[in-house]
């Protein structure tokens, strides 16, 4: 009965999760967080377009 119950109450399958010890995180959240870290690192590393001639003084 329990399995039957779960089958009807679960129209959408749960997304995958990854687990390291006590840390559990959904892949969707992990992708968002990793993307943020990557964008942050790129923002620090990539050269910012600038034109020396725009400088004054």
């Amino acid at each position: 009965m329990i399995t039957q119950l779960l089958a009807v109450s679960q129209p959408v399958p749960a997304g995958p999760v990854v687990q390291w010890g006590w840390l559990t995180i959904t892949v969707a959240n992990l992708v968002v967080i990793l993307a943020m870290v990557v964008v942050f690192v790129l923002a620090l590393v990539l050269p910012f377009p600038s034109d020396r001639e725009d400088e004054d003084r």
Binding site: F40, L42, A43, L44, L46, F48, S50
Partner: peptide, 8 residues
């Protein structure tokens, strides 16, 4: 002010 970090 010349880094991509400033655009966020």
């Amino acid at each position: 002010v010349a880094s991509w970090i400033y655009v966020f």
